[in-house]
Amino acid sequence: MYDIYALARGPLAWGAFIVFFGGIIYRLAAILLEARKKDHVVYAYFSPYYAMRSMLHWIVPFGSRSMRQQPILTTVTFAFHICLIGVPLFLFAHIILFKESFDISWWTLSGMAAQVMTVIVLLSCVYFFVRRIVQPDVRYLSSTADYLILLLVVLPFATGFWAARGWAGFEIATLLHMLSGELLLALIPFTKLSHMFFFPLTRIYAGSEFGAVRNAKDW
């Protein structure tokens, strides 16, 4: 048991981070190079001003008409993403690990806040799941991958919550938490979760085309 823990804490964690960052760099480089070859328009019409304008409208909650038309989905989506990124990045227990390994640390969330945010992530996933099943168009669009990435996100948060509460079997939960978190990290670049770093790219392009060429809003 302790061996596996050491493995997850050491080499696997390293591996996950390397695959995560390496994967992102690889996929970004690949797509940017491909655009050089086959999508000249992406560079030709690139406009920093209109790209930023478009990004801002889509990164601010309810900044677009589309978001305003679906208030519940938008609220859940923003709450979900904020917590999803915020908890792992500012969790005290994570910062300790960084402190131990690299002697670096930064601001942390209170335990209570982290738990509430974790619950938000989990409830959001439940909402997304139910919505996928209940709403006919989304149900039609959904493929196995869409359900699997939900599961991929739920696992580390559910086990993390379990471990943090110190419920029975929390040692196992901690281990599962580490493993599933590492799995999630490593898979981000190679699944639909890559929307995390493709979002800026597609938005920059859409914003530039709409703003600089077509003199129109895109929100």
């Binding site: 797509i31 940017l32 491909e34 655009a35 070859k37 086959k38 999508d39 992406v42 589309s66 978001m67 038309q69 679906q70 989905l73 996928r132 709403q135 168009d137 989304v138 669009l141 959904s142 493929s143 869409d146 639909k192 890559s194 929307h195 493709f198 979002f199 790219l201 597609t202 392009y205």
Partner: peptide
């Protein structure tokens, strides 16, 4: 002809349905 936009669009669609009502 399936370049960067083609791939980025197909990879990135989260099947969220925001576009349906458009």
């Amino acid at each position: 002809e399936g370049g960067a936009r083609f791939k980025a669009y197909l990879n990135t669609c989260m099947s969220c349905g925001y576009c349906s009502g458009a």
